[in-house]
Amino acid sequence: MSRLLVRGGLVTLAVLTGLVLIAPVLVIIPMSFSDSSFLEFPPTDWSFRWYENFFSDPSWRASTLSSLKIAVLVTITAVILGTAAAFGLVRGRLRAKAAVAGLVIAPLIVPYVIVGLAVYAAALQVGLTQTTLGFVLVHTALGVPFVTVNVAASLASFDQRLEQAAMSLGASPLTTFLRVTLPIIAPGVAAGALFAFITSWDEVVVSLFLSGPELTTLPVQMWSGVRVAIDPTVTAVSSLLLLFTITAFAALGVARLIRNRRLARSHR
């Protein structure tokens, strides 16, 4: 009896928690279709005007393109640097390996406000504020830990005898890497790449320091659209972003599911 009560309590709490977690995400979507300039819920009239505004306004378009460009470049550099680091940390023998490993996860530990302040001061010195290069340099540092951590996890469970097997069968070290190692650790690299992309794409705090009239990213423009004067276009952008990230992660989840299913089936 008391067990049932405990279960009931747990379920109630979980439902409430779930609501708190999901509700804000869900409430913003209907609001984005409101026709009103005042954000209201539920909307009285429906329209696509904030979506139209987002796609037609040159400043929104510019910041979106900047963010996209930066995030793509960040993903590429973070994947290359982060994957190499994972190989080094998992397979290498290195003096002060713990220090290097600590350095790699430092961007996860240092509060972004401090990172922002520090890189802003440095970027002012070398003239990299409001430049794509400046953003890419800093966002890469923020995204690299995710790549390294995910690839390192894949590598730790990778059986290195597969590489020996490939070489004994006549594959050069490069071919072995491309045909055997890389395909097998690919899920880790993909997860890392996705996180690196999202890190750059969503980043607000550090970007606030680096942005300006010359170059603004999408999250920074959203921030001013929320902070300065509430611009309902932000609801439309938010909904699009939600759609975008949820699709990306759902794709990753489905890919993992299919992979696991296939493995599970084959273990029968």
Binding site: A85, R91, T140
Partner: peptide, 17 residues
């Protein structure tokens, strides 16, 4: 192998530390 971890170490030193 360990040398592969050095670029990111140098990078983070310059860009962050």
């Amino acid at each position: 192998w360990g040398a592969l971890a050095l670029p990111i170490a140098g990078y983070l030193l310059v860009v962050l530390i």
